[in-house]
Amino acid sequence: MLDVQNIRKTFNPGTVNEKTALRGVSLTLKDGDFVTVIGGNGAGKSTLLNAVAGVWPVDSGAITIGGVDVTKLPEHKRAKYIGRVFQDPMMGTAATMQIEENMALAARRGQKRTLRPGITRDERDHYREMLKILDLGLEDRLTSKVGLLSGGQRQALTLLMAALRKPDLLLLDEHTAALDPKTAAKVLEATERIVQKDRLTTLMITHNMKDAIVHGNRLIMMYEGRVALDISGEDKKKLTVEDLLARFGQATGSDEADDKLLLS
């Protein structure tokens, strides 16, 4: 479903702030794969997701989604294939618009926007039903401005919006990192339900090793702009945190990574 071939990205080339964030990353996701991504700060996790989403062009390499070469497509055109949830709960929704308006915008992702009504009565009923899945009481607040919701509610709504129109690829960029532990667990649970329901091909960054091990059918660990570990199948099911750290040390020849990973 997703095919990333040897992509590279350097920020601020030729200046003192030059930073090579991706040093030739290749990654192939099969249809229905749920891949968790871990790695320390600056390992290139978010950069990888942003490269796939098309926030800026990559320096070299190719990205294909569902057989379509999207390497040169701008962000809004790639949105046709991709559902996204950001780390910052403020980023995924329009605060000054109503809950139902936000959902209606997401329902039209990748479609031509016309002069037809931005939301219809049938849609409203549909959205109310969908919001019930979240179990946050949002189904009674369809016309509330999203800015009135809590961070957790906004993140859950963003998640629902990302999957509203079945995406070829779901990108989750540490989407529970900014939430308190209880809310984070709830949003993660909703994530699991939504991903399972439509068997969405998913790439989820997390800073929590346990979450990375528990969720998904495959785990990759990034280090210095490369994929350092790639564990899937039975291997992934039996994985423990200690295993993971040991294998990471072997793969990179670095032991400093232990605290770096655990702390970040």
Partner: peptide
């Protein structure tokens, strides 16, 4: 309201 959100929704 939110350019990031708009682009992510294909606008």
């Amino acid at each position: 309201s939110n350019g990031n959100m708009a682009r992510a929704q294909g606008i």
